[in-house]
Design a protein around this nucleic acid. Structure first.
Lengths: 245, 245
DNA sequence: CGCCAGGTTGAGGGACGTCAACCGCGGTGG
DNA sequence: CCACCGCGGTTGACGTCCCTCAACCTGGCG
């Protein structure tokens, strides 16, 4: 099993050596997905739980008339189909936002681990609770934050989430979303996202070109977006400090 | 432990007799809260998980400048502080929307059960996943649905959730929210909620007075709100026909 | 009887959406 | 090697859904 998932689990709650060993003993089959923005549904291995090793994906829901809402952005270390595994039923659609590399763990192996390790179970449970916490913060964004605040908030969030899995280089990080996809994340129109990004650029707070973001002043952006990192449940949120302009 | 919680757990996934016995053996202390719209934070019993037996509550988040977003509506059978129990950290604020009756289960008893019953663990895990699923559907509402659609959708959701715990009487059910609170649920202003409710009343679809709702045509409301009940993960969604796609 | 929270109504405004171009660029094929 | 194509980004004009502000109304309650 991937080290990355282990780091993710431990970033939310501590584990004992025995749990760690059990998790590391899980067999993982590596799998690549190249197509961008294509649906992943049906391409994942049945009866396996997938962990993103590299790349970005998203969950989304379509309304009958073509409206689309992106429900979550998935980054390295995120677990794709835990909720399907636990809850069953139908889940939101999945799409790749970039080339993806994933590890697939057979459900029955995972099930066996969960039956013997309550702490590992709680660690996995925790990851789904953190995701829920993020969903809720997005509710606050879409419900109450202005367009400018929403964009600022999202950039802060993604920055910290990527920093936690060492996918940032200083103040820069990849965010392979088109402005239209960003609009579907934020509950805005493409045009308005465009104008909002321009405003942030003109303020000298960010750059955003070809899927790469640079944050020139994280603190200012956090203030602007009414961002406070508690909801991400990172154990060391203060460790990451931005590079000033 | 309350029968209600057991019914809730089994409404999402089947349990074995042993699990059921373990859950029923949990000691529960009953607790009443009378004040309406007051914060519950600090009034719950520490190191206990609470289950709502009767009444309504909500989770909410305040922004520094006074904006408020209600993140979830909690109805009988919902578990209040499972995520605190599993994940720790800070959680959204809680408020009572009506007089509340709750059962409190000591954390350590629950912990002991979870260590011996993986299936009960998954059942409880499932309840948090269903809540997440609801949060996500709210994201779709606030992000993409019009005001009229949002109100219609919410009423359909609450109706089915209450029906699942036998808190509806025919087409009528309690919804003890002011229009201003409804606005904070739906990401709208109070005034616009008022006008939207009037429109639904004039269409003959609903009545909504002093915290009681009556749905005259659930199917029409579901169609209007682009409502499809899958996300609630009820095992018996009734004879409600879903909206396609 | 008066207060007050909640509900209702109207006028006016603003943030964001829609529509429709146009641009720049990488990919592709002739 | 260049013409073409199409997607993503940008811009302007205009429209609208929803917000804000500010009354006023209503009913329950002390």
């Amino acid at each position: 099993m991937t080290e990355l998932l282990l780091a993710r689990l431990e970033s939310h709650m501590p584990l004992e050596p025995a749990d760690r060993a059990g998790l590391l003993a899980l067999p993982a089959q590596s799998r690549q997905f190249s197509a961008r923005s294509s649906t992943l549904t049906g391409k994942l291995i049945d009866n396996h739980v997938h962990v993103i090793d590299e790349g970005f994906a998203c969950r989304y829901r379509d309304l009958p008339d073509g409206r689309r809402q992106i429900l979550s952005i998935l980054v390295p270390g995120d677990i794709i189909d835990l909720r399907q595994f636990v809850l069953g039923g139908t889940q939101p659609l999945l799409a790749a936002l970039s080339p993806l590399s994933m590890s697939a763990i057979p459900n029955e192996k995972l099930l066996k681990l969960l039956e013997t390790s309550p702490r590992a179970t709680r660690a996995l449970w925790s990851t789904t609770l953190v995701e829920e916490s993020i969903s809720r913060e997005w509710l606050v964004s879409i419900g109450k934050r202005s367009a400018l605040e929403r964009v600022a908030h999202l950039l802060c969030e993604v920055y910290l989430r990527l920093a936690a899995v060492a996918r940032t280089t200083g103040p820069r990080f990849p965010l392979p979303l088109t402005q239209s996809e960003l609009a579907d994340v934020l509950g805005l129109s493409t045009v308005h996202v465009n104008r909002t990004l321009q405003e942030l650029r003109k303020s000298g707070l960010i750059t955003f070109q070809s899927g790469m973001v640079e944050l020139f002043d994280f603190d200012a952006l956090a203030t602007l977006g009414l961002f406070s990192p508690g909801y991400l449940h990172l154990r060391d949120p203060g460790k990451i400090k931005p590079v000033p302009a």
